[in-house]
């Protein structure tokens, strides 16, 4: 099939080595510094909270939003994490999840709104989202190390690329799902497009947007192990060292902690979506 040679490889390398790294490194460094201090801030904050207090808050939240069963599960799960001495690592992972979810939502919701409002935007955004979700993770993991160095920052960037699409898609869906007659009725009474968005469409889309946020959180957690490969601290690095030293026990211990966090966060965020 090769009728001609397409030098994508050379071009990309020229682009990265000839322009991106030398010219743009200052720009990426400043992003890196800002993100790092954000991640460190969040990590320090949640580590500074006494674990017992945090657990009680979590249990109450779970009880209120997801019922007694999940509250009990939260208690047992947190006791487990404490008993295998992984609390600090768990908090590091949670911090990365929080930061990447926040960035994903800050990007995803406005883009979702725009693509719901404009077909052109949707046509441009949709293939980009497909690209973000299906491009093998390692393809952008390596360049993000080049640009941002090792540690939590490239992990957050990589997680964002993987986890933001559901936030965009679900926001768009939520807005398009608002019944036509409700939109029509508000317009008939003289609603401006801004009022339509903030008084009608967004409030009615919130449960769907929350489902998107929930998916973003789950995808972010699923990136924990991959992120640890580029030096992100947390539960992922425990699992990774378990795997690399063929320490099955250590791998399971860390892996279970990830599952526990995933279930608690999933049920609580789902509860938020249903309550609204």
């Amino acid at each position: 099939m090769n009728y001609f040679y397409f030098p994508l490889e050379e071009w990309t390398n020229d682009f990265v080595n000839g322009w991106l790294l030398p010219v743009m490194s200052g720009f990426f460094d400043s992003i890196s510094v800002a993100l790092r201090s954000f991640i460190d801030g969040v990590t320090n904050l949640i580590i500074a909270i006494p674990p017992e207090l945090l657990v009680i808050v979590l249990i109450l939240l779970a009880w209120k939003l997801a019922g007694k069963g999940i509250a009990l599960f939260t208690l047992i799960g947190c006791l487990y994490i404490g008993s295998v001495d992984l609390w600090a690592e768990t908090m590091q992972t949670v911090a990365i999840v929080i930061v990447s979810t926040l960035i994903s939502v800050l990007f995803g919701v406005p883009v979702g709104i725009l693509s719901a409002k404009s077909k052109t935007v949707d046509k441009i955004v949709r293939p980009i989202l497909d690209f973000m979700q299906t491009l093998p993770i390692f393809v952008y993991l390596i360049p993000s190390i080049l640009l941002f160095g090792l540690g939590g920052v490239p992990a957050v960037i990589a997680t964002f690329v993987f986890a933001a699409p559901p936030a965009v898609r679900m926001t768009r869906l939520g807005i398009l799902q608002v019944p036509e007659e409700v939109v029509e009725a508000s317009q008939a009474f003289g609603t401006t497009s801004k009022q339509l968005l903030f008084k009608v469409q967004l409030p009615l889309a919130v449960p769907t947007i929350m489902a998107g946020v929930n998916q973003t959180i789950m995808l972010a957690l699923s990136m924990a192990v991959v992120a640890s490969m580029i030096g992100a601290p947390g539960l992922g690095s425990i699992v990774l060292s378990g795997i690399s030293t063929v320490n099955v026990g250590l791998g399971l211990t860390g892996g279970l902690a990830i599952v526990v966090i995933a279930i608690i966060l999933d049920r609580i965020t789902q509860g938020v979506g249903n309550k609204l």
């Binding site: 007659e181 409700v182 009725a185």
Partner: peptide, 9 residues
């Protein structure tokens, strides 16, 4: 409106 078009929230 036929289907009322009330704001459910």
């Amino acid at each position: 409106f036929q289907k009322f078009g009330l704001l459910p929230h």
